[in-house]
Amino acid sequence: MPEHQLDPTKWVDAYADYLYNYTIVKVNDHEVAQDLISETFLAGLKSAKRFKGEATERTWLISILKRKIIDHYRRKNSKKGKAEVHIDYRDEDSEGEWLEERVRDPFDRTAEDTMENEELGEAILKCLDTLSDKHATIFRMKTIDNFDTEAICNEFEITPSNLWVIIHRARTAMAKCLENSWL
C-alpha cells in the first residue's frame, strides 16, 4: 500500500487556490493561470496510474503544473517565431539602451517581496486547511474575497451574529497558526 493516494474528486477544493496563487506569480494572467491549472488536473487524471505514492498529492500536482508553465512559455516563444530571451524596452525613447544599465537595482526589493509574498500566501492557505471546511470557506469569502456579511449570511443561512462567531474562531485559529513564522 503506497503512503499517499490520489483522490481527484477533492482536487479542486483542496488545491485549486494553492495552485492558482503559485501560477499567478509566474504567468501574471488570470485566464492563462486558470487554463494551466485545468490542464494540470486533467493531465494528473490521465497519468494517475503512474502515481507511485512517494510524494504527496500536492507535490505531485505541483510538479505537473511546473511542466505546464514551462510549456506555456515555450509555446509563447515559438508563436513569435523566436526562442531567445525577450527584452522589452520600457518606452520608445529608451531604444538601444545599454543592457548594463538595466542590471538589478540593489535597492529595488521587488523580487524579494514577490518571493516573500508567495511564501506568505502559501502559509496562509496551509493554515486555512487546518480549519473546518465551513469555517474556512466563510473566512475566505469574508477576508480574501471581500464578500458582504449579508451575502455570506444568505448563502449559508446563518445570522450575522453566527457569522461573527465563526469569523472570531477562524481569526483566532489563523493567528495562532501563523504566529510563529509571520505574525
Partner: peptide, 29 residues
Amino acid sequence: RNNRLTKLFKKSTIKTMPSDYKTAMKERL
C-alpha cells in the same frame, strides 16, 4: 494580534480562484 493578522492578509496579495470556474473544473473532472 488581530490588527497584525489583517495587515498580513493585505500584504499577501493572495487570490482565490473564482468559484464559477472551480465549479466548471469540478464538473469537467
